[in-house]
Amino acid sequence: MVKSSKNFRLISVIGSILKWFFLIFLFVYALFPLIWLTISSLKTNAEFMASPFSLPETWQWGNYVKALTVSGIARMMFNSVVISVAATLLNVLITSMSAYAVSRFEFKGNNLLQMMFSAGVLVPLNALMVPYFILITRLKLDNTMLGLILVYTAIGIPISTFITTGFMRSIPRELEESAVIDGANFYVRFKSVILPLSRTGIVTAGTFQFLTCWNEFVYANLLTSSPEVRTVQLGIRYFTNQFSTDYVSMYAAIVISIVPSIIAYMLFQNQIISGLTSGAVKG
């Protein structure tokens, strides 16, 4: 009896050690490469080549100045901000409108519509390069920011509708009914009852949408060609040519390109996590 409880304790100690080893390993795996990249971006090229693990002798902030001047990243950041913000605003406006219709009213084809929107999440959009290219060129929107705004607004529709519908469905009927009694019509109820009450859901959808737009590469690559409309993600592809062997400045440019994502994550972490949990599971 004594022996078996000793064994049991041994097993649980080993289990605990394994558990912590595993959790910490994944922690380091997620973080260390980024820290390494950031530290490398503050070294000289010679230091970087000679000793990849050391801290920089003196912190080379000049790499960041070089990154900004050589890569033209400021312009790309501006383009990315314009495109991402516009596509996010349009997307949440359009999807909160459709979410209002499908979540608060019964009509023929409602279920079918909701199923259709959800199924959109699973469509492998990367495979649709030929049709997207033809569509955007025919609309004469190739190589324009407007073209990308349109594409990005559209590709986020399934996930945003999904998240927003879930939130709107949970608003009690009574609130809307009392607004009807007060004489509020369809549009007034949307604007002054439903929209304010589903703000959390809309912010969640918007956060996802912004990150999707900011990080999108495939269609930026396919649908634009001139530097004037180039987004940050597209810029990263050209860094290897622009900086050639100036690795440290290139890393500085990559760090700069990541910063907005990190800021968005820091600010909206709770929204992101609650969006994933409410949206994806309870479909």
Binding site: W214, N215, F217, Q269
Partner: peptide, 23 residues
Amino acid sequence: FRTVYFFPQVISGIALATLWAAI
């Protein structure tokens, strides 16, 4: 742990790929 595990997901595929090219 949860915050850090999620962290790479907010970074673009292209930036991560460039990072791993260096690795």
